[in-house]
Structures are given as structure tokens and as C-alpha cells.
């Protein structure tokens, strides 16, 4: 297990380096000068040159990249003072330290994604299993056909409708907001319930269909037939023998879906104006705020990679063949 973690961490660092380099150089490929933003209305070429110097934009791009990356590891000295590691620099837009801003925004995004993942994994896999259990019956047909419809419900379409209907019209829920769980767990839950629902809807529908077909496939397996042949009740066969195998494709797809889950979270935050990494990312891109874009990018990537390692470790718990070979 330690070996596995060591190996995966090393791989993760390589991936992060590639992502960071790609983002950094792509940023400079864009035909916009970040200095224009800081310069304000009465901008002269001299003023821009000064800002360039202050922001370090006068140096060659590879040098800038090196300074930025080494700053993450060792910290960095700016005119305003020392920035301790991990240092992602200061925002071009408002001079806030990037790292602190991210730490401030991160809990919202984590609450949103993990909560939504919990919802769609339970609801999706649950309905999928029920559909497989009652294969061909009415309930299976209802679940299967509704999942087909729901899997085309995009967040930016459902979000405003839900907001208009449940919040403004019926008033059943308050305006979605983020309250730290440490301050007020109930408020945290109530504030996020609508974003969770909207974000998880499309995933739930997909996981229903996947769990159903994966389960039905497992029920055809030889070893499941053996379990029946030795007198196990259909409940035992279903929930012990078939269920375990059906999890493997679900876990695999979940690992792949993590990226789109984050993407979905960004749209959801934007839709409900939640102060998360998603809204931060959108704003920083609009502002050509290089340090902030880099910070959010690397932070989100790290988080996705870490979750992927957790997902891979899950295989070992599900399937002894992975554990022992």
C-alpha cells in the first residue's frame, strides 16, 4: 500500500508539472496584457512598463515560470514582503495573496462536490440496483425511462428553473448560500441542498443506468449461478455476490467523472452565486489574473488527482485480485 501511494504521488507531481506548464504558457499565448487591468484608465506606455516590472512580466516567460514554480516550494520575496511557501504570488487584480483566497474559497467547492457525489452515488446506484432487481417490471421501466430524460438535464437549464420554482415561487427553500459547517451545520445543509440537487441530477440519471446494466451483467456471471446453486437466497445472491462485482465499473467511471464533477461544480457555483473556486476561476480568467488562474488550476488538479488515488485504492478493497497481484 505504501509502495502504491509513493508511486502514485510521484506520478501526480509529473502530471501537475505538465498541467502548470501548459496553463502558464497558454496564458501568454492569449493576446491580452495583464498590465492593462492594473493600469487603470489613464494608461501610458511608461506606466505599463512600470507595472510590467512590478509584476515581473518583463522577464522571459520560462524565467517567470521558474520563479512561479519555485515560489510554490520555497516561498518568494516580493516588494510588499516575503510570501511563505506555498506561494502562488498575489492577485494581479486586487493584490490579495492567492493561497489565502483559495483556502477561503475551497470549503464551498468541497462541500458542494462531495455532497453532490454522495447524493448521486447513493441515489443513482440505489435506483439502478432496484431497477435491476425488478428487471422488466413497472418500477424498472419508470426508473429506466426517467433516467433517460434526466440525463439530458443540464445544470444551467435546471438550476434557474429550480431556483425560480422552489425558492422564489413556492418559497420552500431559502436562497442557496454557503455557511461553514463548523459555524452552523444545519445552515450549511439547508443552504446547499438545492445546489446539491441540481449538480447531482444529471449524474444520478447516468449512474442509475450504469448501475442497472452493470448489475444485470453480474447476475449472468457463472459464480452468481453457483451461489444460487448452493442454495443462497436471491437476496444474498443479489446483495453479496452480484453487487460486489457491479461496483467495479461504477468506481472506474466515478474516477473518470471527477473532472466533469468539478466542471459541473463551477457552473453550479456560478448559477447560484456561491463563493467557491468555480466563481473564482471564472473571474480570474476574465481579469487575466495569472497567479490566481494558476493557483486555482493547480489546486483543483491536485484535488482531483488525490481523489483518483483514493478511487484506485478502492479497487483493492472491492477486488482481492487487485490487492494481491
Amino acid at each position: 500500500m505504501l509502495r502504491f501511494l509513493f508511486r502514485r504521488s510521484l506520478g501526480a507531481i509529473v502530471i501537475l508539472l505538465i498541467i502548470s506548464a501548459f496553463t502558464f504558457f497558454l496564458f501568454f499565448a492569449a493576446p491580452r496584457d495583464p498590465a492593462l487591468l492594473a493600469c487603470g484608465k489613464n494608461c501610458t506606455p511608461d506606466a505599463i512598463a512600470v507595472i510590467h516590472k512590478n509584476l515581473g512580466l518583463d522577464k522571459p516567460v520560462p524565467v517567470q515560470y521558474w520563479l512561479f514554480m519555485s515560489g510554490i516550494v520555497t516561498g518568494r520575496d516580493f516588494a510588499v514582503g516575503h510570501c511563505p511557501a506555498p506561494c502562488f504570488g498575489y492577485s494581479f487584480a486586487n493584490n490579495d495573496p492567492v493561497w489565502d483566497t483559495i483556502l477561503d474559497r475551497f470549503p464551498t467547492t468541497v462541500s458542494l462536490t462531495i455532497g453532490a457525489a454522495a447524493v448521486f452515488l447513493t441515489a443513482g446506484v440505489g435506483t439502478g440496483m432496484i431497477a435491476a432487481w425488478k428487471q422488466g417490471r413497472l418500477i424498472d421501466k419508470i426508473f429506466s425511462s426517467s433516467s433517460l430524460v434526466l440525463s439530458s438535464m443540464q445544470i444551467y437549464f435546471v438550476g434557474p428553473i429550480v431556483l425560480a420554482l422552489l425558492v422564489y415561487n413556492l418559497g420552500w427553500f431559502g436562497q442557496p448560500k454557503y455557511v461553514p459547517i463548523t459555524d452552523d451545520p444545519v445552515g450549511w445543509f439547508l443552504g446547499l441542498i438545492i445546489p446539491w440537487f441540481v449538480l447531482s441530477l444529471i449524474f444520478t440519471a447516468q449512474y442509475t443506468r450504469m448501475a442497472r446494466s452493470s448489475m444485470i451483467e453480474q447476475l449472468q456471471e457463472d459464480h452468481v449461478r453457483t451461489a444460487r446453486a448452493k442454495g443462497m437466497t436471491s437476496r444474498t445472491v443479489f446483495f453479496r455476490y452480484a453487487w460486489r462485482g457491479s461496483l467495479i465499473p461504477i468506481v472506474t467511471i466515478f474516477g473518470i467523472d471527477l473532472g466533469s464533477l468539478f466542471g459541473g461544480a463551477m457552473i453550479t457555483e456560478y448559477t447560484f452565486a456561491l463563493p467557491g473556486l468555480g466563481t473564482l476561476a471564472v473571474k480570474s480568467v476574465q481579469n487575466t489574473d495569472l497567479p490566481m488562474v494558476m493557483g486555482v488550476m493547480l489546486f483543483a488538479a491536485t484535488f482531483i488527482i488525490l481523489l483518483n488515488i483514493v478511487v484506485d485504492a478502492c479497487y483493492a478493497f472491492i477486488d482481492p485480485r487487485v490487492r494481491l497481484s
Partner: peptide, 23 residues
């Protein structure tokens, strides 16, 4: 039937690799 299977009547299948649960 569940009470009889594996008890009074039992079955051995062709492919022992796929017929035993890997889990």
C-alpha cells in the same frame, strides 16, 4: 428450492475459475 439446493442436491460447473466468486 433454496432449502434443497446445496443441501440435498448440489452442482459442480465446468469452469472453476469463473464459477467461484473472485471476491
Amino acid at each position: 428450492l433454496e432449502k434443497l439446493r446445496g443441501n440435498k442436491m448440489a452442482m459442480i460447473f465446468q469452469d472453476p475459475l469463473t464459477s467461484l466468486s473472485p471476491y
